[in-house]
Design a protein around this nucleic acid. Structure first.
Lengths: 163, 163
DNA sequence: TCTCAATTGCTGAGCAGTCAATTGCTGACT
DNA sequence: AGTCAGCAATTGACTGCTCAGCAATTGAGA
């Protein structure tokens, strides 16, 4: 069954079974699965991807606000080229429109079209459903507030250096 | 500044500013950023990707255990084709080896090579460093245990239906 | 006023994953 | 024994991102 165990096997097994490794894996895996759920629900029911919804969320937050691709890239944790292509697709789909900035001719402002806004409202409902089911329901109220608090701390630490 | 606000603007803004939306976004974003940190640290210092480390973690957990690509796919939340290509790359890099199963000639068992095991030990140290810095340090001990508990509940909910 | 380093967005090439279809094998049912 | 539904792994075509390198534009300092 276990013919010639290397001497380093034990050390490797110890590292592989460390609770920290397991816990961290759990965070990453839960996030991935959660996003997959949201994404496929949105694709099926609204025809848009999760990333596109994130763009619309950002754009609808403060109506009338001018949002550049750079800001979107930063907020979505994307590179500028990734953002360019994402906005290309969304423009093709009729969800957003690029408008040149009056103040700086380098920047392309992105704004939602009326269709984008209505798509957003539909998508937000689907989003809320999935979030409720897998993010709110499984947790006690106390756990929920503590979870988001903890995530805020992690996010702060991530921003602070090399941020 | 805000020429002709649509009537649906307010509804959209309300949805976009919902705390649930924000909190969920925080979870996803933190996980993405955390993974990017780990991934680039591992690439720079060990020449392997985060996904490859996850494979090695799984393979070293119980030395001598037979692990098929299917099991790896399930554990890593990947499709079987994604796993095939991942193992291709790892085999090319000399980290793992495919061994035909004696019991079922369809399955390819994956096992770490000696080089894979030593690479794993180095990578695990880097992994631990980053995890400690951004996952353990920012949290109080209580928050940590509660966070992992909450993640466990979410994971359970995800597994339970359509799992 | 001129220069020049920094910044915005875009493009080509490449990487790491997905989905759909295919092959080889297995085990259950007739 | 023979068929056939189903599963493991693989492949081709595609997606959605990254990185490196680009042109246009900006603003600060000589």
């Amino acid at each position: 069954m276990n013919p010639t165990p290397h001497p380093s096997d034990e050390a490797a097994a110890r590292a592989a079974n460390s609770p920290l490794v397991r816990d961290f894996g759990l965070l990453i895996k839960s996030a991935i699965r959660l996003e997959q759920r949201i994404d496929s629900a949105l694709r099926q029911e609204c025809g848009i991807s999760h990333t596109m919804l994130e763009v619309l969320i950002r754009l609808c937050r403060r109506p009338g606000e001018e949002v550049s691709q750079r800001q979107l890239a930063d907020d979505l944790t994307l590179t500028s080229s990734g953002t360019t292509r994402l906005i290309d697709r969304m423009e093709d789909a009729g969800l957003v429109r690029r408008v040149p900035s009056a103040e700086d001719r380098r920047v392309a402002l992105v704004e939602p079209t009326p269709e984008g806004r209505t798509a957003f409202l539909r998508a937000a409902a689907v989003h809320a459903q999935v979030v409720d089911r897998y993010f709110v329901k499984p947790l006690a109220a106390d756990d929920y507030t503590q979870l988001t608090g903890a995530l805020g701390e992690i996010d702060k630490a991530l921003r602070e250096d090399t941020g």
